[in-house]
Simulated scan of single mutants.
Amino acid sequence: MKGVIFAPLDSVDDALARALDAAGLPTDDLHEPGRAFFRLSDDAGAIGFVGIEGIGVDRLLRSLVVLPRRRRQGFGALLVNHAEASARQDGTERLHLLTQTSSDFFHAHGYRRAERSSAPASIGSTAQFTSLCPASAAYLVKDLA
């Protein structure tokens, strides 16, 4: 897509928090260490956001949100692709995520369903797994290698 910019956020800003809150996604732990958030934008302004949490070979893909007026234009896939590329550059071998509403979207992008009990300790101990996302959320994994 021409003219889009994928850029890291220097800090969590109000636009990210508002977008996540409006989408019903967790915001309680945004300011904790070990999180990197990215904004996708173009000449018309912000399009959406995505985050990666953790260090090491297993990391959490989180906080994917496309602003309502920009949905259904392929930007969600673009955000995921950019986040995966960034994670891969940092040495990530697998991305993990929890979702209540977007399993089909992530399946279409190569994520497979897994049992929550199979999550590595570095993922299973995150706030997303332990308290922020309900037990009913689907756990998905993608190998980036």
Rank of each mutant, 00 (worst) to 15 (best):
R113D: 15
R35E: 01
Y139R: 10
R116P: 03
A121P: 12
G45W: 15
S86I: 03
L132I: 05
D21N: 07
L30N: 11
A138H: 14
T92G: 03
F105I: 08
G51R: 01
V141I: 15
L16R: 04
G91A: 08
G3H: 03
L20C: 04
A17Y: 03
Y139S: 13
M1C: 13
T101V: 10
E32K: 14
L61K: 00
D21G: 11
V80W: 00
M1R: 10
H82E: 14
K2L: 07
D10P: 06
A22I: 13
H107I: 05
P68A: 11
S86Y: 06
S86V: 12
F49V: 07
D90T: 10
V4D: 06
N81E: 15
A15K: 10
F106K: 08
L79E: 07
A17G: 01
L30P: 04
N81G: 14
V4R: 10
Y111P: 12
R18V: 14
S117V: 13
D42Y: 06
T126C: 06
G3I: 00
F38P: 02
L16G: 03
L60P: 00
S41Q: 15
L67W: 06
N81Y: 01
V12Y: 03
C133T: 04
D10K: 09
A87G: 09
L20N: 01
K142N: 07
P26T: 10
R70E: 11
V66S: 01
F129D: 03
G74C: 07
L9A: 08
H109L: 14
G56I: 01
G110A: 02
G48M: 03
I47Y: 10
S102K: 08
R94F: 13
D14V: 05
P134T: 09
Q128G: 00
A23R: 08
P26E: 02
